[in-house]
Simulated assay, not measured.
Amino acid sequence: MKQMEVTIMGQSYLLGCPEGGEAALSAAVAQVDREMSAIRDAGKVKARERIAVLAALNLAYQLADAPREPPANIAPPAAPPALATPDMDALIQRLDEALAHDGQLL
């Protein structure tokens, strides 16, 4: 794991970062810095700890409220197979026969 030096609200931090995760970490740092700076610039909160907690809550709320989308690096699911195939009909018939002899499942 490599280390990256980042700056949030003018203060430097040394963070661990997995190989290849530099861009994602930089984007996350930028988002946290923007959120914390916006809270600080609003002038109502002065303490860094309170700013950090409020920023974390804002970001967590945004994440929880965001619509769920599949990650970009995952291929969309393949089209489902046609349901009315001879093999599928035979399988359904075998399942029906097996379940008929077994009685109720639940």
Rank of each mutant, 00 (worst) to 15 (best):
P77T: 01
E97F: 08
S26T: 15
P77W: 01
A82W: 05
V32R: 05
G10F: 10
A82R: 14
N73V: 02
G10P: 11
E22D: 14
D89N: 14
L91Q: 13
G10L: 12
Q93A: 12
D89Q: 15
L91E: 04
K46T: 13
Q104P: 11
L15P: 09
P76A: 14
G21V: 01
A75L: 11
V45F: 03
Q11M: 09
P77R: 02
A84F: 13
A52M: 05
E22T: 09
L15R: 02
I8N: 06
A23P: 04
A75W: 00
E35D: 13
G10C: 09
S26A: 15
G103D: 03
G16S: 15
G10E: 14
S26I: 08
V45N: 03
A27D: 13
Q104I: 10
N58R: 01
P81C: 02
A64V: 04
I51T: 05
P70L: 09
D33G: 08
V6W: 03
L59W: 00
L105D: 06
R48V: 14
K44M: 11
A66M: 13
E69Q: 14
L95P: 01
L95K: 04
Q93E: 14
R68N: 06
A55Q: 03
A42F: 02
A64T: 06
L14M: 12
Y61R: 07
D102Y: 11
L105M: 12
P67K: 04
V53Q: 02
R48C: 07
R50D: 15
K2Q: 10
A79C: 07
R94C: 05
L14S: 15
D33F: 10
G43I: 03
A38H: 12
A52Y: 06
P77A: 07
I74N: 02
D65L: 05
Q11F: 09
G21E: 14
P70R: 08
P71Y: 05
R34D: 10
V29T: 04
A75R: 06
E97H: 09
I74L: 09
Q31R: 15
G20M: 04
P70T: 01
D87T: 13
D96S: 13
D41M: 00
M9Y: 00
L54Y: 06
S37D: 11
E5L: 11
A28K: 05
R40N: 06
A52V: 02
